[in-house]
Amino acid sequence: MSKYLLDKFLFTVDRDPELVERYREDAAGTVSWWEEEMANRILNCTTGEKSTWQQLTDEERTALREHNHVALFELGAHPFLTLTLFIAMFERDHGPLEYQQAYGKAMEHLTLPYPDIAT
């Protein structure tokens, strides 16, 4: 499991409006493309340097493809990164704060100690 890679996906997709829409409309395709093309790029590096060893687990891929923020949190993805991306994708489909409340309600069953979200 790679919390770093999950957080990197959430971070990079959330900062590109075109990727947000792509992920909203075609999650499975976006996750596959991102893992192939973007996952091993060095963050904030403009020289095209890449690593070769990182990849998502099947469980992480499934959670990302299903837009499953609860599973992502349980896997250790940072909740602020998940929330900001999912607000960008789904808030427009709901009334004021309705999506944020549903997001929280879906995580009500979780109790302390929460998964470690340290970076």
Rank of each mutant, 00 (worst) to 15 (best):
P96L: 10
D26F: 04
F90H: 11
R92D: 14
E37I: 01
F9Y: 02
D14E: 10
D116E: 10
L6K: 03
A106S: 15
T119I: 10
T82E: 09
T52A: 11
S2W: 00
N44A: 12
L5F: 04
T30I: 02
R24T: 01
K8R: 15
H69P: 03
R22T: 12
D26I: 01
F86D: 02
V31R: 04
E74Y: 05
R15D: 09
G29E: 03
R15H: 08
G76L: 06
A71E: 12
F86Q: 05
A63E: 02
F73I: 06
M107S: 14
D7T: 14
H67P: 07
T30R: 00
E108M: 15
Q55T: 01
L5C: 12
A28G: 03
C45M: 04
H67E: 06
Q55S: 15
T111M: 04
E37G: 01
W33C: 01
E108L: 15
D58R: 02
C45L: 02
T47F: 00
L64Q: 04
P115C: 14
I42P: 04
I87M: 11
G48P: 05
Y103E: 09
E60G: 02
A118M: 05
A71L: 07
T57G: 00
Y4H: 15
P96E: 14
F90E: 03
V13S: 08
R24F: 05
L97C: 06
T12E: 15
A27T: 03
H78A: 13
A102T: 09
N44Y: 05
A39Q: 03
S32F: 00
E37S: 08
L112Y: 13
R65F: 01
E36K: 06
T119N: 08
E49A: 14
L97P: 00
Y114I: 11
L64M: 07
V31H: 04
T84D: 12
